[in-house]
Design a protein around this nucleic acid. Sequence first.
RNA 1: GCGCCCGUAGCUCAGUGGAUAGAGCACCGGCCUCCGGAGCCGGGUGCGGAGGUUCGAUUCCUCUCGGGCGUACCA
Length: 559
Amino acid sequence: MDPIQTIRDGLTRLVLTALEKSRETGMFHFDSLPNFVIEVPRDEEHGDFSTNVALLLARQAKKAPRKIAEIVVGQIDLSYVPELAKMDVAGAGFINFYLDQSWLYRIPALVVSMGNRYGSGERQNQKVQVEFVSANPTGNLHMGNARGGAIGDSLANALAFAGYDVEREFYINDAGNQIEIFGQSLEARYLQLMGAKIEFPDEGYAGQDVVDTVKNIIREYNDKLLSMEPLTRQAFVVDYALKEKMAYIKNTLANFGIQYNVWFSERTLHEGGQVTQALDELRQKGYIYEEDGALWFKSTLFGDEKDEVVVRANGLPTYFAADIAYHKNKFDRGFDRVINVWGADHHGHVSRMKGAIQALGYDPDRLEILLMQLVRLYRGGVVVRMSKRTGTTVSLDELIEEVGKDAARFFFVMRSADSQMEFDLDLAKEKSQENPVYYVQYAHARIQSIFRQAKAAGFELKPPSEVDCTAFGPEELQILRKIADFPQEISVAARTLAPQRIARYALDLAGLFHSFYNHHRVLNEDRALQDARLLLMETIGITIRNGLSIIGVSAPDQM
RNA sequence: GCGCCCGUAGCUCAGUGGAUAGAGCACCGGCCUCCGGAGCCGGGUGCGGAGGUUCGAUUCCUCUCGGGCGUACCA
């Protein structure tokens, strides 16, 4: 139930009817219906809603926009939309609609009755998969993974709340070149720690975490690996390390509030022959050729800058080959839409991935890729530098430890994915209203505090039907207007893959609440007013809670 | 060089082709001390630049300047 959309639909029908009547009676002529909008004007002087239909019709109808607007307004029967109070023509030819503010009196009952479903959309009957983080299991989770986790999970939440059937998936890169190198690195460290004088591979993983893993292996198996064949030994240490890394990744992401439906192993694609199958299909369709001993995919046919190797001269498939098989597999699993959240460093991969999807016969628009720009951490006003030892600045688990899950998620979700963001660690930790996440949570806690006091004084929240909403003044109505927007915000955030809208909305609503709180009392007022304001508080609380829940941030009752 | 993303107020950032472009912080002035730790009111110069499409452009297109990323038989 979306109150704004309901009104908008009503107004749209009204305008359409008026247009038809105008044409039938010969007031003006048009052949095709313009793609007009019913929107909420920025300036409230311009009404509650307005439409640009007359401006769009001017050329076809060969009349001045204002003239057309006058005619349309003359054909509209006000009584069709009960809350419609008046209309006028303004500006270049806009038609403005003014509502009777009493329509807002219905909002609290709607919100209270829907509770934690307020803002949700109707079932879309569309299967959407969101794949995010998919960090390499060869190292720690870094800030890119953190941002991807927060954005991906919040986006998935928003889509689910908006009515889509959503699955969250993590792609485990447990095969391929990097795993080979990972194995060689682990083996080299093992042998070194066991006293052998051998060189560490040039391209190897030099981080401390590899050494730590090897120490665990030694603790468990001591010298048992020394007698193994090198390949067996590498397979052994890789298996051990992958188990350990995946346990770490799962645990850290769980602490970050993320639960996946599917953990998908790249290795199963190779072992199940799906990589070969996908390449065969591309070859049959004529998109594969051989050159310099390697197999290439003709991604230039799909707008890419250069063709891309899928099987190296040494016979091993590339990461891209596995990714083609992986995406084919996704579509074969019946998803209508597949969304990937990727770091900006993968953007070169986008066009060829879409090309491969198209080559396999799928509509490339069904694959949507959300690219995130880089994160710069600040502490004490200066950039936190990359650590040479660990290869990261701060890992996700350290970030959660330092600022907490709630602040971390809110900060990442607050910014749109495609802007490079600065993350101020000091601000995230601050327990003051300067801190955006604290500001929103504090609004919720304050509301609960009011209810605790009300209860102590013997007052309870009355059902909306017993509350006189005419007690609401302009500020209460302004808040209710904002709350009425919530379902639209969810819907737009889901449609445009923009979870930052929800964070911003929560901040705006919290701001309206704090301002109200500072100007008015809820308790110890006239009973009718107190009842109405308690209901308003409940309405705000529910909406803030629902918004925060999408972002993955808790709504505490006390702080 | 080529490709993608970004460029909005002093700073961090919003802004589904609409009417007079916003928020928070910072800064200045005035007020207030009340459910929860201070708050309230007021104060402003900005869409990097130049063209184009449009009745209308921060939004779409072209060029240009600046920043980031990519441009591997790495992932």
